[in-house]
Design a protein around this nucleic acid. Sequence first.
DNA 1: GCAGTTCATATAGCGTTGCTATAGGTGCTA
DNA 2: TAGCACCTATAGCAACGCTATATGAACTGC
Lengths: 242, 242
Amino acid sequence: MSFEGQPPAKMRLLRAAAELLANSAGAPVSTRQITQLAEVSAPTLYHHFGDKEGLFDAVVSAGFEEYVAGERDFAPSGQPLVDIRRMWDNHVQFGLNQPELYLVMFGNIRPESRPAIVADAEALMEEMLNKAAAAGQLSVQPREAARSILAANVGVTLMLIAEAVVDRNLDLSTMTRDAMIYAVASDQAEQNGNESSGKSSVVVAAIALNAALQSSHSDQLSSSELKLFLEWLHRISTSSTT
Amino acid sequence: MSFEGQPPAKMRLLRAAAELLANSAGAPVSTRQITQLAEVSAPTLYHHFGDKEGLFDAVVSAGFEEYVAGERDFAPSGQPLVDIRRMWDNHVQFGLNQPELYLVMFGNIRPESRPAIVADAEALMEEMLNKAAAAGQLSVQPREAARSILAANVGVTLMLIAEAVVDRNLDLSTMTRDAMIYAVASDQAEQNGNESSGKSSVVVAAIALNAALQSSHSDQLSSSELKLFLEWLHRISTSSTT
DNA sequence: GCAGTTCATATAGCGTTGCTATAGGTGCTA
DNA sequence: TAGCACCTATAGCAACGCTATATGAACTGC
C-alpha cells in the first residue's frame, strides 16, 4: 500500500498520525492533534478511517508491511534458523524504534479488537519455520513454534520498551532468543536426519529414554511410578508410525 | 496492605474499581462508573489516590500481593525448577483470570510509568531462581534468567489474553515455559556437544522425548495419562544429578 | 449545457472523559 | 469553645472521540 496515489487528505492524515505516534514519547495522541497537523478537520478523519483505531491500524499496517518487506528481502541465508534469529532481532528493533506503534500493535491487544496484526506476524514467522522444518531442523510443529517464539519475542520487546533507554540491556533479547530457538530446534533429537515425521521422532526419543532408564536408575520417581512410566513408555515406543 | 482498617470510602473505591475491572470485559472503566458504584463523588477518588492510575495501581498491587502471597506459600517443593514451572503457570492463570488488571499491569508499560510492578515480579522470580542456582541447577545468572523467563511469561500471557476464550490453547504456555526453563537450566552442557559433564543420558533422552511429544500429540495415551506422564518426564529432566 | 449523483471536506456541537477550585461537614485535641 | 486536620460534596472546566448536517467539487447521463 504505497502512499503515492492517495488523495492528499488521507495521506496527510496517515503521515501526521505516524509522525505524532513516533515522536510523542509515551503521551497519548489525540485526533485533534492529528487533524490539526494534517490541516484537516475532524470529519475527514472519520470519513476515511471510520475510527481513531482505524487510522492507527492503517499506520501500523503500513509500517508493518514496510518492516515485513525489508525482512523478506535479505532473509534467504540458506540457514533458516539463522534467519529466524535475524527476524527476532528485527522485531525487537522495530519495537524499540517505534515504541508507540509497537504498543498499539502488541501492547493493548484484546480479544475483540486486534488479532489481525498478530496473525500476520505469526504467519511470517511460521513461513520461515516451515523452511527449517523442511530441512529437518525443527523438533516441533512450525505453527506451534512460531506462536511460541513470537510470544517470547513480544514479551521481550515490551520489557525492553518499558525500560529506560539508558539501561536497556539487549542481552535479555539475545538470551531469550537463543533459548527459544534452541528449544525448538532439533539438535537434541539428533536422529531427525533420516526420519522427519513428527511421530517417529517421538518413538525414537521414547526408545532412547527407555534404554537410558534401564541402564541408570533414576531416583526421581518412586518404584511404582517408574513401573507405570515404563509401561507407558513402551506403549509409545511400540506405536506404529503413520 | 489489608483492606480491614481503611476508611470506608477508600475501601469502597478499591472494591468498586476491582469489581469493574474484573467484570467489564475489555471495555475501559471510567472514574464516574467507579465513583458511582462506590457511592462516592469524584474528588474523594482523587483525594485518596491522586489519580485514576493511582487507584488502578492500588488495585493491582493489592491483587498482586495476594497472588504473590499465595505463590510463596505452596512454593517450597524442594525442586526449585518445579516451583518455577508452577510460578509460570500461576502467572498465566492470574492473567487469564483478571485480564483487565493484567493489561493494566503488563500491557501498557511505558518507560516513565510503571517499572514498579515489573520489578516486583522479577524479584519474585529471581528469588526462586536463586535457590536453583544454589543447587547448581542454573547455567546462567539468576537475575538474567528471571528477566528472560518473566519476559516470555508476559508475552505468552498477553497472547493468550488476546485470543478468544474459545480457542485458547494452553499448549503455547506449556511449551514456551519448558523451553525457557530448559534453556536456563544447567543441563545446557550438551548444547555445546559436551555431553559427558553434568547430565546423564537419561535426562537428555527425557528432554528429547518431551520436545517430541509436544509436537505430535500421541494417541497412545489418554489425555490424563499424558498429563501425568509429562509431569514425570519433567521431574526426570529437571533432576540435578543421577 | 445542465440536473443528478457521488465523493471529500467543513461548521458546529453532543456526550463523556479525567480532573479540580472551592467549600462544607466531622471528629479530634487543647 | 476554638482550632485544626481530615474527609467528602457541589459544580464545572478543558479535552476527548465522534457525528448530524451542510457545502463544495468532480464526474455522469442526456
